[in-house]
């Protein structure tokens, strides 16, 4: 819900903090989001705490907010770290979501084949089917290893960007490959599978992970 200009969540006048958080949000996400990322909520909470502490020391509300914002750091100074943190959250979520999707895919397709009595793929369709299975198995092996390696890498602050590129690239490459191959398999099958089923089971989940990883990677692009 929109709030009147110059008021904060608690209802007090907070134009400086509001302006700062709005500016940080814009520099971080680059666009309005449906919900406030946790990082930005914490930034606002911190600024409110700092302003209240300043008031307790005898500063006016306005002076206390200016001091709080100044100590927090200029938007240009802190925004890159916020973008990296949000990017990391997005690509990591995308990679883990994709892991579950890859695990569930064979089960759902096997269930569909059993229910519909689908004939086994032949010729080029068989090749595509084998490719999808290979990519799925490779991802099942690579994702947990990457998760463990990246958790270790995150113990050094300078490696965050590298971790985002690895997670994002892995999810992007796997999701796009499986999506394209699944469409090809559908087109080449002796009796094409219901496109709606393919869309719901494969295309939509893959698209969601692709979107999430692309957004994460975009946050760290120059």
């Amino acid at each position: 819900m929109d709030r009147p200009a110059g008021t904060c969540q608690s209802g007090s006048v907070s134009s400086t903090i509001d302006a700062y958080v709005t500016s940080l949000a814009s520099a971080t996400t680059g666009r309005p989001t449906r919900r406030t990322p946790r990082l930005l909520q914490e930034a606002r909470d911190h600024l409110e705490d700092a302003a209240l502490a300043g008031q307790a020391r005898g500063l006016s509300r306005h002076q206390a907010e200016i001091e709080a914002v100044s100590a927090f750091g200029a938007v240009e100074q802190v925004a890159p770290a916020y973008r990296a943190a949000l990017g990391l959250t997005r690509v990591r979520t995308a990679a883990i979501s994709l892991l579950f999707i890859v695990i569930l895919q064979p089960l759902v397709w096997a269930g569909w084949g059993y229910a519909e009595g689908e004939p086994t793929a032949t010729g080029p369709g068989l090749v595509l089917n084998d490719l999808i299975e290979f990519i799925g198995i490779a991802y099942l092996v690579a994702c947990p290893i990457t998760l463990a390696a990246c958790s270790a890498a995150l113990r050094g602050p300078e490696r965050t960007i590298m971790v985002i590129r690895i997670f994002g690239g892995l999810a992007l490459l796997t999701g796009a490959s499986v999506m394209v191959l699944a469409l090809g398999l559908n087109a080449l099958a002796p009796q094409p599978v219901d496109l709606l089923f393919t869309t719901v089971v494969t295309i939509l989940p893959m698209s969601a992970t692709l979107t999430m990883s692309t957004r994460g990677l975009r946050l760290i692009s120059p």
């Binding site: 930034a43 911190h46 927090f72 770290a81 916020y82 990296a84 990391l88």
Partner: peptide
């Protein structure tokens, strides 16, 4: 140090399991 950089560091340490 700019206190604003503290929160991204905390998020990274959380993902690192510390």
């Amino acid at each position: 140090v700019a206190t604003g950089t503290l929160y991204p560091a905390l998020h990274r340490l959380e993902k690192a399991g510390w």
